[in-house]
Design a protein around this nucleic acid. Sequence first.
DNA 1: CGAAACGTTGACCGTTTTCAATTACAGTGG
DNA 2: CCACTGTAATTGAAAACGGTCAACGTTTCG
Lengths: 201, 201
Amino acid sequence: MNLDSLHWIELLQTGDQLSRPLDKGEALFRQGDPATCIYRVTRGRIRLLRHLKEGTSVVVQLARPGETFAEAALFSDRYHCEAIADTPSAVTVLPKTGLLTALSADQGLCMDFAQGLAEQVRDLRTRLELRNIRSASERILTWLRLQTTGVPPTVWLDRPWTQVAPEIGLTAEAVYRSLAALEQQGRIVRHPDRVELCPGT
Amino acid sequence: MNLDSLHWIELLQTGDQLSRPLDKGEALFRQGDPATCIYRVTRGRIRLLRHLKEGTSVVVQLARPGETFAEAALFSDRYHCEAIADTPSAVTVLPKTGLLTALSADQGLCMDFAQGLAEQVRDLRTRLELRNIRSASERILTWLRLQTTGVPPTVWLDRPWTQVAPEIGLTAEAVYRSLAALEQQGRIVRHPDRVELCPGT
DNA sequence: CGAAACGTTGACCGTTTTCAATTACAGTGG
DNA sequence: CCACTGTAATTGAAAACGGTCAACGTTTCG
């Protein structure tokens, strides 16, 4: 969904960039910490969690290599969510102060930054749409359609279904059952590492 | 949620701004139309719908006075959703071309624009969080908390519950039942035009 | 090799959806 | 001024669906 071959971050002088490795489970920042930096994933996967007052927490973003996160921190004093390394990871650290001056100085960079945000808006709206689909099977099918590449339409799985399930608002069990049903109906074909969508679904 | 007293749009010279009135139900643009403008609501309410392939459609945004929409059109050839006037409305029309040159010329404006997008990202993430709350009552309660203003915490209703219900991913019936239950439990107090939250919920 | 996570399936339960019926209310036109 | 119409609000009953709990085989990784 984020195929920016020329990302705005890459236009910044390398001097401002710091790489930070993260162990699996390590926290990059916690909800409420002073917002000092924004980030880009270079390796692994960063899980952004937002904690609600009731003690529940929500996956707010799953940042994968090439994706940026915590952009909103630029305009905020505190982080509004928590960042945890999902797997051994590494992130590029962009200090707020330097970034703000760089964006002010270069309007082209600022436009690229805005475009990245606009794309995130679209992505989030898509995820929101997905949640409006009540049926577990249809929701998964729609999710698969969105993830599809190539012909035959194929979804390559780079993480277990147990990780996907909460992202699309279902339990792992519901996902397994729906996948089994979809396959039995001949609407999908499952392989260990991928799913193929059958035509006419 | 969008209390920008000094909105970036207002910083544009008035010459670029056109006002367009819309009857109830009138379409501003359709999904797939060439993306030529972005908009700001000045009166009424604009409903942004996204149509899925299956024939279902989803409310993607409910733009109210002061809010902008279709910002992503700036970087896209086509509109990705449909804009329908929910009530008799009026919008400020911002032609893409003029806006792009204005943003390129004024980096401060561009930063404000980016900030607006970052706020939208946060808003969308909040809506996404809400959907992760399974219980209808808790979901509504959390939604109410997010809408709350003043003391005692009060939510002013400017539209019927039948409109709110799909926005938060519930049927109208479920909303009515939950509201009745919440009131019976003494967690909220309902009035014709508003809801008050009781302390300690 | 062993532990932890993943994948899978069954049974049961609770909640929401769905369908249906009724009341209330605002706007419309005769 | 009042039927008439459409929408909102409300409640009931039943059905459907996903969640939860549980058990177990499999895979992965240290």
